[in-house]
C-alpha cells in the first residue's frame, strides 16, 4: 500500500498510456471486423476462408507477433503503433467470428419480411440485421475489451510502456506491491471499459434487456424439467 501511495502519479500516468494503447485497438478492430464478419455470413465461399484466417491469426502467440510485425510494417519494435496494430489484429480475429455468428442468428423469416415490406439491401443491413445482431456483437466486443487490456501489458517486455511496465519493473527490482498494483489496475481498467460497453449497449439497444430475459427463460425451462425427474 505504501508503494501505491508514493507512486500514485506513475500508476495514473501509465493507466492513461494503457488506455491510449488499448482503446484505439478495440475501436479499430470492431469497425474493421463487422463488415468482414458480414461478408463471412453473406457468402458461403468466403466464410471458410475468412474464419480460418482468423483462427490462424488467433493462434499466433502475442510476443511472437509483436516481434514479427515491425519487419512487415517498417515500424520500430518499440513503437506503440506496432503494439496497437498487433492488438487490433487479435481483436479482429475474435470479433469476425462473433460477427459472422451474430448475422447468422438473425431469423431468415425476419430478413425475408424486411425485404418484402420494401427494405433495400443497405437499408435492411442498417435497419434490421445490424440492430438484431447487436447484442451478440456486443458480447464479442466485451471479450475483446477484456483481452486487449490484458494483452497490452505484454508489450512491456519489448519496451512499450503500459501498465505492464509495473510488472517488468517490479520483477527486476523485486517489488511485489508494484506487480500487485499492476494486476489490480489492469483488471479494474478492463472492468470499467467492459461496464462502459454494457451501459453503451443498453443505451443503443434498449430492447436487448427484455430480449435477454426471455431467452434466459426459454433456456432454463427444459433444464428445470430435467431436474424434477
Amino acid at each position: 500500500m505504501t508503494w501505491l501511495w508514493s507512486n500514485l502519479d506513475l500508476v495514473g500516468e501509465l493507466t492513461l498510456v494503457h488506455l491510449a494503447l488499448s482503446v484505439p485497438a478495440i475501436i479499430l478492430s470492431f469497425v474493421i471486423s463487422v463488415p468482414i464478419g458480414w461478408l463471412a455470413h453473406r457468402y458461403r465461399w468466403s466464410r471458410g476462408v475468412l474464419l480460418s484466417l482468423c483462427a490462424l491469426l488467433y493462434a499466433i502467440p502475442s510476443l511472437a507477433l509483436f516481434v514479427a510485425l515491425p519487419p512487415i510494417t517498417g515500424l520500430a519494435l518499440r513503437s506503440p503503433v506496432n503494439l496497437v496494430i498487433a492488438l487490433t489484429l487479435y481483436g479482429i480475429a475474435v470479433i469476425v467470428r462473433t460477427a459472422a455468428d451474430a448475422f447468422d442468428a438473425v431469423e431468415p423469416d425476419v430478413r425475408q419480411s424486411a425485404t418484402a415490406i420494401g427494405y433495400s439491401a443497405a437499408g435492411r443491413f442498417w435497419g434490421v440485421e445490424l440492430p438484431l445482431a447487436g447484442p451478440v456483437l456486443l458480447s464479442g466486443l466485451r471479450v475483446v475489451v477484456v483481452s486487449t487490456v490484458s494483452l497490452a501489458t505484454v508489450g512491456a517486455v519489448i519496451g512499450v510502456e503500459s501498465l505492464g511496465s509495473l510488472f517488468t519493473d517490479g520483477f527486476q527490482r523485486g517489488i511485489q506491491a508494484e506487480i500487485l498494483t499492476g494486476i489490480v489496475a489492469t483488471i479494474v481498467l478492463a472492468l470499467v471499459l467492459d461496464w462502459l460497453c454494457v451501459v453503451g449497449g443498453r443505451l443503443l439497444m434498449p430492447w436487448s434487456r427484455a430480449d435477454a430475459a426471455t431467452s434466459r427463460a426459454r433456456l432454463s425451462t427444459p433444464v428445470k424439467q430435467a431436474d424434477t425427474v
Binding site: V146, S147, V149, S150, T153, V154, A156, V157, L163, G164, L166, F167, T168, G170, F171, G174, Q176, I179, L180, G182, I183, T186, I187, A190, L191
Partner: peptide, 19 residues
C-alpha cells in the same frame, strides 16, 4: 473463468517469479 481471463498473464508470471 471470465474473471480469470482478465488476469494479465505477464503480471501473474512475474508475481510468481518473485514469490
Amino acid at each position: 473463468s471470465g474473471g480469470l481471463r482478465a488476469l494479465p498473464t505477464l503480471g501473474v508470471l512475474t508475481l510468481f517469479g518473485i514469490w
